[in-house]
Amino acid sequence: MSEHIFDRVRQAPGVVLDRPTYHADSDREQDKLDGGVIWKLERSQVFNEVGDAAWDAFVAGDWPRVMEIFESEREAIGEEIRANTEQGLEFRRLRVVEHPPTPYLQWESHSHRIFVECGHQIRALDAATVAPLETRAVLPELMVYGDRALYQVRYDGAWTPVGAKRVDDPELVSQTAEAIAGLWQESEPFLDYFHREIAERPIPKIT
């Protein structure tokens, strides 16, 4: 794995898309795939999930409502996984984690637990593992659709999602997928991380 692949992604030319356009564009790319793997790499420990009901409940300090919303999503998650399976797709989500976990990461981890219990493939990777790759900047937030396209997800200063940069260079797309796959091999099942680092922690609060 090249130590510079993620720097190349950041520097690569691409088409900058606003958030609605990015989601529509990536949906079309997923529909075009004939099997294969979709990769999601999550690195930041803080995001601002504006418009998400469970996030709004978290910000309001209503943890029971957060968990009620997360639990209510099981059926939809299962349907999404079944649709992916019928298309021959595997969605693999790699979550880089720092210690101690931020309130955001704790909140997200309870959602991820439910996703995993429904059959979603998620693994956790200690941030120390990727430190050698972050001499210039932390890893970018990425979505990679087979060998067709990758998106570097973009955020504003408050870590609110604002869209993505689409990169179509076939070689760079392929090499990025290989790099994430290499990190995946160094990671651990998300539920192992969850039960060790998250489950027994007090209910998180945003300060």
Score class of each variant (00 low, 15 high):
D7V: 13
D18R: 10
R19S: 12
P20M: 07
T21A: 15
D25G: 13
S26V: 12
E29Q: 15
D31G: 10
K32T: 15
D34S: 15
G35Q: 09
G36N: 09
V37C: 10
W39F: 09
L41H: 04
E42Q: 12
E42H: 11
N48C: 15
E49M: 05
A53W: 03
W55H: 03
W55K: 00
A60R: 08
D62Y: 08
M67H: 08
E68C: 08
F70T: 06
E75K: 15
G78V: 08
G78L: 00
E79Y: 06
Q87M: 08
E90N: 09
R92A: 06
V96R: 06
V97G: 05
P100Q: 01
T102N: 08
P103A: 05
E117I: 10
E117K: 14
C118M: 14
C118Q: 15
H120P: 07
H120W: 13
A127Q: 11
L133I: 02
E134C: 09
T135G: 14
R136A: 12
L139A: 00
P140T: 09
E141S: 06
V144M: 00
Y145F: 14
Y145H: 14
R154F: 06
Y155I: 04
T160M: 01
V162T: 13
V162L: 02
G163Y: 02
G163N: 02
K165W: 02
R166W: 10
L172F: 10
S174K: 14
E178Y: 08
A179S: 11
G182D: 12
Q185S: 14
Q185L: 11
E186P: 00
F190Y: 09
F190R: 05
E197S: 11
E197A: 12
I198T: 02
A199S: 12
E200F: 05
R201Q: 13
R201D: 00
